[in-house]
């Protein structure tokens, strides 16, 4: 197989890792929402944690994007 083609395929497969990040982020927001509906008065104090968790989880998806970039441009 051509090396360039292998790089392309590898990069495409690497983006699948973002599915995990999608699951994680949606899990965070779903749980936050169900908790916030149970106890709406406590919800505003936890938005900082929500955003923080979202950023941490989202970063993992970004890592797979980065792997794709490295495969395309560096490897």
């Amino acid at each position: 197989m051509d090396v360039e083609a292998a790089k392309m395929i590898g990069a495409g497969i690497a983006t699948l890792g973002m599915a995990g990040a999608a699951l994680g982020v949606s899990n965070i927001f779903a749980n936050f929402l169900s908790g916030a509906l149970r106890n709406p008065s406590a919800a505003p104090s936890q938005t900082g944690n929500l955003i923080f968790g979202m950023a941490m989880t989202e970063a993992l998806g970004i890592f797979s994007f980065l792997v794709a970039l490295i495969l395309l441009f560096v490897a």
Partner: peptide, 12 residues
């Protein structure tokens, strides 16, 4: 992770 998180988010 600290550097790649910031870099990756902004780049992406």
């Amino acid at each position: 992770s600290l550097s790649v998180r910031l870099f990756g988010n902004i780049l992406a």
